[in-house]
Design a protein around this nucleic acid. Structure first.
Length: 111
DNA sequence: ACAGTGACAAGTC
DNA sequence: AGACTTGCCACTG
């Protein structure tokens, strides 16, 4: 399995109403330290994969896109649409960060 | 071959 | 809080 596939399948596990950081996704995909690769995969991923790209944020909780950008507005809108509050370009990770369950981890090991 | 560029992150000051 | 540095490495010209 290629790196990009590991990353994509991990992103697909982020639950509705929760968010994850780039570094967190890289770690869960078994690629620690490769946060930038996550960003690249999201940029290049075919739309058909339907990745929940809006649920991936920076480790600070900030959106990765520039403030006021079209994409940032879209991302905020999608997040708020599923109950994730976005205050001035940022999400409170204490409340909304995905905490993978043991089942989520085991699922990855057996696939 | 090589240098610049990222949807990043952690450390330092 | 913010700016800057270093590590990361696939991709591009």
């Amino acid at each position: 399995m290629r790196q990009s596939e590991k990353i994509a399948s991990t992103i697909l596990l982020i639950p509705h109403g929760k968010v994850a950081s780039y570094g967190q996704i890289a770690d869960l995909a078994g690629l620690p330290g490769r946060a930038r690769l996550v960003g690249r995969v999201l940029r290049q991923a075919p739309k058909a994969l339907k990745l929940p790209w809006h649920r991936v944020l920076r480790s600070s909780g900030q959106l990765a896109f520039e403030r006021l950008s079209e994409q940032a507005r879209k991302q905020s809108s999608l997040l708020q649409g599923e109950g994730v509050q976005v205050n001035s370009h940022r999400v409170n990770l204490q409340r909304f960060q995905w905490q993978p369950s043991l089942d989520d981890i085991l699922l990855r090991l057996t696939h």
